[in-house]
Design a binder for these strands. Structure first.
Length: 496
RNA sequence: GCUCCGGUAGUAUAGUCCGGUCAAGUAUGCGGGCCUCUCGAGCCCGAGACCCGGGUUCAAAUCCCGGCCGGAGCACCA
């Protein structure tokens, strides 16, 4: 018997209607923009359930709006999902199945479940909103077929004719009010070029695809909730079976925009540097700032709930998990912010080997010391003249004098003296200048842009940091976990 | 405006379906301590919540009604 009060080993809750060995889920990105953390979390949910029960996951691109789809985004999702550790069993694009959508559309028309409508956009919107059917709804099937064939043959231009489902014009669920299922789009598709100009709409394409992919569980965010009924109706007309739906609220993080529109506007206004700005929550951003995929996975298992309540996560929740993962692989190095020069008597020239990690066997780095160091000014000032301090792994010293520019002291090499403040240091002859970018929240709780969202800290680091590869994790002792960035001399703080 | 959905500590959640074992568990954050040659990791202790008002009941976080607050949908986008 498990104590219900402990969730130390918390996992995803059981999936309704799940059959062991046969849970088929899907990753359904629209390749029209960059992948962000919300996609990753949702993708992980779909993947982890498939792993939990055994089954398959599909990667299926929802690319039926040629105007929005861009070729580069297909890869952005493939890369992103792979990076978070998802391995999908099958991959396809909705745009692969145009003939299938056409065939089924014809079946619907023939069966009286769809009709060709020539109402203008505004007219259609008005009637739908009032719940009133238009005359086209009661056209004889021959007329509908004639018009449908005309669409396929290219006799109509965009907006002139569209194929509509016979739904329920008076339903309170407005998605059911005879939605358009096929329409003419005069745009070149990145995958199919100009081969097709009649495209399915989302609900129609998804209904059919979910059925033919054998999806057993649709796990998605709740903006789709009202669509369940419509999609089931389409499948009923077509004699296809329905999946189980599990819908949950979108995942947001405090002070961080999620919508592409918002992000684009920040970029255009120059408030962030681009789609991979470390303050953003795109996959490119969180990778760049050192969030590990394992941390995302653990985050899903520990903190995600498949409920409809609003979720705005605190970044701290993710950081705490990430910190534990990163702690094992981050080399320890010295970085001094607001440095002050310290001259120590009693130390000659010598080479010292310092461990790269306190507990793991990551090896050492060697520093040559001469008696002149950069150390944090603040530490010396708090200790004051006459005070005693420890340079970590090196020596104890007594501070003799401190001015604004220089401090002097007398050192004794040897083991640490209990009770002394232990500080990091960089030999003057081993010093390199670096900057650390500290990303913060982009928006304050009141919604205003946070002018201090990116802090830049300049300081001195030990030369060893030059040998770090871009993307590698390092812990600047007494400062925080950072990632070596591709920008020259730059590190990005992951978190303290 | 119409239609849905939600509201447990600062944050995320467990518990809500099948009312009592919940004077409400966990994680994170916060305060304190231990340990440690880091302000990290690890360990221990502490403070901190059932949106409001009615009702039903011996008993309500859990059921009912009303209110308030929040979110979503209402495209020939997905």
């Amino acid at each position: 018997m498990i104590d219900r009060r402990t969730d130390a080993k918390r996992r995803l809750p059981p999936l309704p209607n799940a059959v062991e060995g046969n849970v088929v889920t899907r990753l359904p990105p629209e390749p029209s923009g960059f992948m962000h953390i919300g996609h990753a979390l949702s993708g992980l949910i779909n993947y982890l359930y498939k792993e939990m029960y055994g089954g398959k996951v599909w990667l299926r691109f929802e690319d039926t709006d040629p105007r929005k789809v861009r070729p580069e985004y297909y890869d952005s999702y493939r890369d992103g999902y792979s990076w978070v550790g998802i391995r999908w069993d099958h991959e396809k694009n909705n745009s692969d199945d145009m003939e299938l959508f056409y065939r089924n559309a014809r079946r619907l028309v023939e069966g009286g479940k769809a009709y060709a409508c020539t109402c203008g956009r505004d007219e259609m919107r008005r009637l739908r909103s009032d719940g009133i059917p238009c005359d086209h709804r009661s056209q004889p099937p021959e007329v509908n077929l004639e018009l449908w064939d005309g669409m396929l043959e290219g006799r109509y231009s965009e907006g002139e004719v569209s194929l509509r489902l016979v739904g329920d014009m008076s339903s309170t669920n407005t998605t059911l009010r005879d939605p358009v299922i096929m329409r003419v789009v005069d745009a070149v598709h990145p995958l199919t070029g100009d081969r097709y100009r009649v495209w399915p709409t989302y609900d129609y394409a998804v209904s059919i695809e979910d059925a033919i992919c054998g999806i057993t569980h649709v796990l998605r965010t709740s903006e789709f909730m009202l669509r369940d009924e419509l999609q089931n109706l389409i499948r009923r007309y077509l004699g296809m079976s329905n999946p189980t739906f599990v819908e949950y609220e979108r995942f947001e993080f405090e002070g961080t925009p999620v919508s592409r529109r918002e992000i684009r506007s920040l970029i255009e206004r120059g408030l962030v540097s681009g789609w991979n700005d470390p303050r953003l929550a795109t996959i490119a951003s969180i990778r760049r700032r050192g969030i590990l995929p394992q941390a995302l996975k653990e985050f899903v298992e520990r903190y995600v709930a498949l409920t409809q309540s609003r979720k705005v996560y605190s970044w701290d929740l993710l950081y705490a998990i990430n910190r534990r993962h990163v702690d094992d692989l981050a080399s320890r190095m010295f970085f001094v912010k607001d440095p002050m020069k310290l001259k120590l008597d009693g130390i000659g020239e010598l080479d010292v080997d310092l461990p790269l990690h306190p507990t793991r066997n990551l090896g050492n780095r060697r520093l040559r010391v001469t008696g002149e160091f950069y150390v944090p000014a603040e530490d010396l000032k708090t200790v004051g003249e006459g005070g005693r301090v420890r340079l970590k792994h090196l020596c104890n010293f007594t501070l003799k004098s401190v001015t604004d520019k220089l401090a002097e002291g007398v050192a004794e090499l040897g083991p640490p003296e209990p009770g002394l403040k232990v500080i990091q240091w960089v030999p003057v002859n081993e010093a390199v200048e670096v900057q650390v970018l500290i990303p913060g929240r982009l928006f304050n709780p009141d919604g205003a842009f946070n002018e201090e969202s990116l802090e830049i800290v300049n300081g001195i680091a030990e030369r060893t940091v030059n040998s770090l590869e871009v993307g590698s994790h390092v812990q600047f002792e007494r400062f925080g976990y950072c990632v070596k960035d591709s920008l020259p001399k730059t590190f990005i703080l992951s978190h303290r």
